[in-house]
């Protein structure tokens, strides 16, 4: 079952193309990480999904409802936490959540119980009577989270829910997120990769407004490979030769000892290391050792989202 279906979505601001021809689906009950560097179009996409921003073209369906033609029905099934968790500072936490529950159409007899439940899930019960304006950033974020959950929505959209939290709070929010899978469908935007590894079972990756990967976490791991190459030669020269090979996204070079260099070569999706070895050998550098490195999520992310390899090749010596 598909909870969110985005088809050929494009958003243009004047001449600036914020999102270009993006299509992806989010299965019901999954926790999907929405990844991408800052400015990739994550927030724009989430705002279109949540119904607070119009699209230029394409179709977006949430819980079976088109977000434009059946906007009210779609919005009634979404809990959305915007990036800054905007709240009314002059209200108390419980007042705010009760207001939000009423606004979202929670029946009067359920309101109290549902508000209590949301406060418990987001761990804000301890500040229920505090003024929102006096709360710390971490608490405000969690009040926003409680708001997203208060009407028991089918779909929860979270825009960087752990931004600005301390490690303990991040841990709590992650535990909460894991508990949401199954009953809710969660689409979680972030650029913190450990968060995706900790909480998500699927990923959608955007870069420069375009979709670059979609699928299980394995998609990310398989997307890019890196190898350690040990050779005879100078670090700078070896790095220049290796960087010039097609499909090489990044090269780190370090000197092991006199005349021996250790390269870490990062390759684009499903590329082979062979051309790199061939290039090094034909440049007169004797290759002593080639071994694969299991790609970390960070490396995969960089490989997927960086295309301009020139400005990212850096020697670490």
């Amino acid at each position: 079952m598909t909870a969110i279906a985005v088809d050929k979505l494009t958003k243009r601001y004047g001449t600036h193309l914020a999102i270009h021809d993006v299509s992806f689906t989010v299965p019901r009950g999954s926790i999907t990480g929405f990844l991408g560097p800052n400015g990739a179009g994550k927030t724009t996409t989430l705002r279109i999904l949540a119904g607070s921003l119009g699209k230029t073209s394409g179709t977006v369906t949430v819980a079976g409802f088109d977000v434009e033609t059946s906007s009210l029905e779609a919005r009634a099934r979404i809990g959305y936490l915007p990036e800054q968790a905007p709240l009314y500072p002059e209200m108390r936490v419980v007042e705010y959540l009760t207001f939000r529950a009423e606004l979202k159409g929670v029946a009067r007899r359920d309101r109290r119980a549902w508000v209590d439940e949301a406060m418990e899930k987001a761990v804000v019960g301890g500040v229920r009577d505090a003024m929102i304006g006096k709360l710390s950033k971490g608490y405000r974020q969690r009040v926003g989270l409680a708001d997203a959950l208060v009407a028991r929505p089918e779909i929860v959209l979270l825009d960087e829910p752990t931004a600005g939290l301390d490690p303990n709070q991040i841990h709590e929010v992650r535990a909460l997120l894991r508990g949401l899978g199954g009953a809710h469908t969660v689409l979680l935007s972030t650029h913190v990769l450990s968060e995706v590894e900790a909480s998500c079972d699927r990923v959608v990756v955007l870069a420069r407004g375009e979709l670059v990967a979609e699928g299980s976490l394995e998609v990310l791991h398989a997307a890019a490979g890196s190898f350690v190459v040990v050779l005879r030669g100078e670090p700078e020269a070896a790095r220049t030769v290796a960087s010039a090979v097609a499909d090489v996204t990044r090269v780190e070079a370090s000197s092991v000892d006199e005349g021996t260099t250790r390269l870490v070569v990062h390759l684009a999706a499903s590329a082979s290391i062979d051309p790199v070895v061939a290039a090094l050998v034909s440049a007169g550098m004797g290759v002593r050792e080639v071994s694969p490195v299991r790609t970390s999520l960070e490396e995969a992310f960089r490989a997927l989202t960086l295309t301009d390899k020139g400005d990212e090749t850096g020697a670490s010596s």
Partner: peptide, 14 residues
Amino acid sequence: RSGTIETLMTAPVS
């Protein structure tokens, strides 16, 4: 200015 308009307008309200 505070951004609360976004949470307001993404609730099912006309």
